[in-house]
Amino acid sequence: MTAHFVNLLDDLRRRSLRMASEVEDMVQEACEVVFQLNETLAQRVIARDVEVDAEEVAVESEVIRLMALYQPVGVDLRLLCTVLKANNDFERIADCAVNIAERASHLEVQSLASECDALRRMAPIVRRILRHAIQSYSADDMQVARRVLEEDEPIDAYYGQIVREIVANATRSSENMGGQLDLLSVAKNLERIADHATNIAEEVIFVSTGQIVRHRGASRPR
């Protein structure tokens, strides 16, 4: 029974990682559309969300089934809790990618994005953070997970800079307000993706140590 349960856990983990890989691809394609209009690619990102949604439900159902039937404890319990939470984060990241793709389908975004230095810097960092988060999740690598938490720090600064630039532009002229708001939405969704990636890294630390490190290093006493 135990070997069987371990196999089921491995299957679940592989399934969750396939979903993670799918979501990472969606974010990459959405970011491409931000800087280079590609309606086909944008539609593909939007279409892939349906698969991710279905997969989210399937993974969640499997976690509930395993908890009910096997009553796991210790590291197995922590792993299932983490898969459940990361599953939610992956689905939300996919939603963010869809939001970005939808906004980036509008004609004004590419020209504004290319002129926005903070956004050009921010997008690859967000993708890197997500890649590292998935890497740490895949390999239970605490060191990489801790690096993700550090990498997230400049994201808020970039987002703040983008907001200030958009407000300044809007103050100067109301021209192209729609495009500016689309750009703001893109930046906001990128910032949310980084937050979800950080959540995943925190869950990886929880699986390995049992420590809850959310809310900036606050951990519960044993």
Partner: peptide
């Protein structure tokens, strides 16, 4: 704590059936 994050690997192995 024993059933969520035991301190000893042998405890971990026992409670998880390994």
């Amino acid at each position: 704590l024993i059933f969520t994050r035991p301190g000893n690997p042998r405890t971990q192995d026992y409670i998880t059936g390994r």
